[in-house]
């Protein structure tokens, strides 16, 4: 008590602050940092949850790179998804936002409609999409047939499974669209007016004004998009045959990790995979940050 009285106001406030956040600090240490460090250690053991936890050095990592053909498959599948999904989602999000920022009819209704899918929850949506993607009676192939295209077997043809998921996930682009939309409204209109007086075309205005002005939000979406895309799991867990099929074409990194951890109980191995993914995503994020200086424009400096 005496100690407390001798403190300056600043120190007191700091102490009070720590007290207020202490539940969070406790939760972070016990439920986040603790398990995180535990899994880091587990990555170097043969941990199987119930019977053993012996230190095995880098054996898990050696096995991943030299002995496990499914690891390479899962990395390929995941990269495929990331490479196509992130740019597509970004482009579609921006385009949609720009279109709905114009004075189109039913603007409010359309904004709601496009945002709606982001509100719906995962598994139910995936089941719905499995019906939409059904090869002969699904709505998508029926529409394609109307314009004379014989649609693929989507989820049953290994060449089309990943494109099917990429297209499906475009459906949920409304969430990012909303961010762009909010950002678009804050682009000062005098910029457009000045450009119009100077005779800039619509395309010029888009590429010279709109796009640079919303690069901070694009950057944010690209970074979170990368992180999210690398973690694709639920879609494949629900929609693939035999959890990853056909032909292991939907065996994504996290699905394989999950199978190792909870079907085969190789928790040490799975932890090694998790840390590898963490490091990879970290590197990509740092690269993103580094290159962002070249293309992200912050109004009023950084």
């Amino acid at each position: 008590m005496r100690l407390f009285r001798r403190m300056t106001i600043r120190q007191k406030e700091a102490l009070q602050g720590y007290m207020f956040v202490s539940p969070w600090i406790f939760g972070f240490i016990v439920f986040t940092a603790g398990p995180l460090l535990f899994s880091l250690y587990a990555a170097f053991t043969n941990y199987d949850i119930t019977s053993r936890m012996d230190f095995v050095g880098a054996a898990n990592f050696r096995r991943l790179f030299t002995l496990d053909p499914l690891f390479a498959t899962s990395v390929y599948n995941t990269l495929y998804y990331v490479v196509f999904s992130v740019p597509l989602r970004t482009a579609c999000g921006v385009l949609l936002a720009v279109m709905l920022n114009q004075g189109v009819m039913f603007r409010r209704v359309l904004r709601t409609v496009y945002y709606m899918p982001s509100v719906l929850s995962g598994v139910a949506v995936y089941l719905l999409w499995m019906q939409l993607l059904s090869p002969s009676s699904g709505l998508i192939n029926m529409l394609l047939e109307m314009v004379g295209i014989q649609g693929p077997a989507w989820l049953f043809d290994p060449r089309w499974t990943k494109p099917a998921l990429i297209l499906m996930n475009l459906w949920g682009v409304g969430g990012t669209m909303l961010l762009y939309l909010a950002n678009l409204q804050s682009v000062p209109s005098q910029l457009y007016e000045a450009a119009e007086i100077d005779g800039a075309s619509i395309l010029q205005r888009f590429f010279r004004i709109t796009l640079p002005m919303i690069t901070p939000v694009i950057f944010f979406n690209v970074v979170t998009g990368f992180i999210g895309a690398f973690q694709i799991f639920q879609e494949a867990y629900v929609m693939s045959t035999d959890k990853g099929g056909p032909l292991n074409s939907l065996l994504f990194y996290n699905l394989y990790l999950w199978k190792q951890a909870f079907e085969q109980f190789n928790m040490g191995y799975a932890s090694a995979m998790a840390w590898l993914l963490f490091v990879a995503v970290m590197i990509i994020t740092l690269l993103n940050l580094h290159f962002s200086k070249k293309w992200v424009y912050y109004e009023g400096g950084e």
């Binding site: 053909p69 499914l70 032909l247 292991n248 199978k259 079907e263 085969q264």
Partner: peptide, 11 residues
Amino acid sequence: GYLDLINPQLD
């Protein structure tokens, strides 16, 4: 997990 090696070949 050995079936994960057979199923893709059957596919």
